[in-house]
Design a protein around this nucleic acid. Sequence first.
DNA 1: CCTACATAATACCTTTTGGTATTATGTTTA
DNA 2: TAAACATAATACCAAAAGGTATTATGTAGG
Lengths: 108, 108
Amino acid sequence: MEAELQVTFRALSDPTRRAILMHLHQGDMTIGEVTDKFDITRAAIKKHLTILEQGNVISVQVRGRERINHLEPMALQPVSQWINSFSTFWDERLSNLQTVIERNEKNK
Amino acid sequence: MEAELQVTFRALSDPTRRAILMHLHQGDMTIGEVTDKFDITRAAIKKHLTILEQGNVISVQVRGRERINHLEPMALQPVSQWINSFSTFWDERLSNLQTVIERNEKNK
DNA sequence: CCTACATAATACCTTTTGGTATTATGTTTA
DNA sequence: TAAACATAATACCAAAAGGTATTATGTAGG
């Protein structure tokens, strides 16, 4: 459990990797496509993608000679839960969400 | 904004530091008291506390010759918000929380 | 005031991280 | 099948991180 948490936290702890996740949020991308979004070499991007994959934050599908990188947002859940285990914070959030949910109900 | 996110993520990215936060969740502690919970030197603990302080995740109050370390759970909010910005995940969480809130309502 | 003790500061070492460069491998496609 | 192209693998470098050891400093209390 702690081990899982750690690989995920490690994956998220670098600004470049978080930026990659944001890009993948728009849709799946090959290594080359990801590289085009940044000013660093493909090999460096590849290293980041490997760490993201180890953290289960992305999944990779090999298609022909390409590797398609796909965001796995559910992997963020353990991190979110860890954060929410600090109850003071949790209570505060809960009341904020109450408002959000009520607003959603009205729009139905 | 990214800068703030980064210092917080950095603070959380180490297992020892997360364990320190869990201990501080029980109550404020001096450096010595925190050290007693671990098997590493006081100097190493102090370095971790400095990084936690830079991430605004704890605050420090100097009292006489002691430094009282205090948890600041609200600092986790930007990280939580970043995670929730991945909407697939968010939608899933929202419905879970709906359940939690409804249960709370019944207990009032 | 002076001694004991908690924290601070500094120097130093090892490992990890982020990156580049280069070479190899495998897959299309003309 | 050969050439072009995308990814993989390896070696290497510099900087940062995590840690210990040691010395300095400041504060409480007898």
